[in-house]
């Protein structure tokens, strides 16, 4: 039965992939791989290079994950290990409430507060505005924080209390027990929580759209440069969510280029999900042992 549904899901995914590949064929014919590696996107000149948007998506997502992971896991550890047990459920309920807030609300809050805070806080860097990749990254981090936290908490709950008691009985400190028992036995759940969050971040549109600046062709001079973080940029989703998609509809090549962006996004998200599945499906014991 579960096989049937897996097959059904795979079928629809393939159908979708096929549709997007087919729709984006013109741009692949015109540019080939340069569509992915091309640094400039000028649709009036029929020039379509998606690299700046891929870069924007990756930067924003990684930033969000980098910020949300330590805070979210730390908060989960705090509620699980330090907070009195009777507080754990109310805190979890509150956090889950936050996880359900629509992203457009986060976007508006971003415009209202975060944008100004980034602009004021980083004044010494001579920002042009508060709409930057960094702003989008922080906003996304805030958005996924509740998810990361509550799923990490779920993962921590799967560790039997007896294990912690045994470790404390062996003279391990609270911190050592948190690391070598709680984290060691739940890190896979946390990684899957992060991957889920990553999937959400990659596909998130409206919140990013509102604070990312939507500047085309924003690429750094050097790949290691951090400067683009504090400049406006564009992600795959903010491009797709903008008005250009309506302009593109009349022109087959331009339309193909836009659909191609969705195809790239789909591939990345599917890849992440697949990775998460593999990680979860490997046998419990093995990977826990390999951590030590």
């Amino acid at each position: 039965m579960s096989f049937f549904f897996t097959a059904l899901a795979a079928f629809f995914l393939l159908l979708m992939l096929f549709l997007f590949v087919w729709q984006s064929l013109p741009v692949w014919r015109q540019s080939g791989l340069a569509y992915v590696t091309g640094e400039s996107w000028y649709f009036r000149q029929q020039e379509f290079g998606a690299l700046a948007m891929i870069y924007g998506t990756l930067v924003v997502s990684l930033l969000a994950l980098l910020l949300a992971a330590p805070v979210g896991i730390g908060a989960a550890l705090f509620t699980a290990e330090i907070l009195p047990r009777r507080w754990r459920l109310p805190v979890k309920a509150a956090v889950e409430l936050l996880a359900g807030v629509p992203s457009v609300v986060y976007g508006l809050l971003g415009i209202l507060f975060l944008r100004n805070w980034v602009y004021d806080g980083l004044q010494y860097l001579d920002l042009l505005s508060g709409d930057t990749l960094l702003t989008a990254g922080i906003l996304l981090a805030l958005m996924i924080l509740p998810t990361v936290m509550t799923l990490s908490d779920d993962a921590l709950r799967t560790v039997p209390a007896a294990q912690g008691r045994a470790a404390r009985g062996l003279g391990l400190t609270r911190a050592e027990t948190a690391i070598w028992v709680s984290l060691a036995q739940s890190w896979r759940g946390m990684v899957s929580a992060l991957l889920l969050a990553l999937g959400r971040v990659l596909g998130e549109t409206i919140a990013v759209f509102l604070v990312v600046g939507r500047r085309d062709n924003a690429l750094p001079e050097s790949w290691l440069s951090l400067r683009p973080l504090v400049e406006a940029g564009q992600t795959l989703t903010s491009k797709l969510g903008g008005s250009e998609i309506n302009i593109a509809y009349g022109d087959p090549l331009h339309w193909a280029a836009m659909v191609g962006l969705a195809l790239l996004l789909l591939i990345v998200v599917a890849g992440i999900t697949w990775l998460g599945n593999i990680l979860m499906r490997r046998k419990e014991g093995e990977s826990y042992a390999s951590l030590h």
């Binding site: 007896a162 294990q163 008691r165 045994a166 470790a167 404390r168 009985g169 062996l170 003279g171 391990l172 400190t173 028992v181 036995q185 419990e284 014991g285 826990y288 042992a289 030590h292």
Partner: peptide, 23 residues
């Protein structure tokens, strides 16, 4: 924690960690 090192404990049910015997 030092006390618990010097006063060890054996529980009613064995609690082993999901690790190798050696570990």
């Amino acid at each position: 924690d030092e006390l618990r090192v010097r006063v060890g404990m054996l529980f009613q049910q064995p609690v082993v960690f999901p690790l190798s015997i050696l570990k």
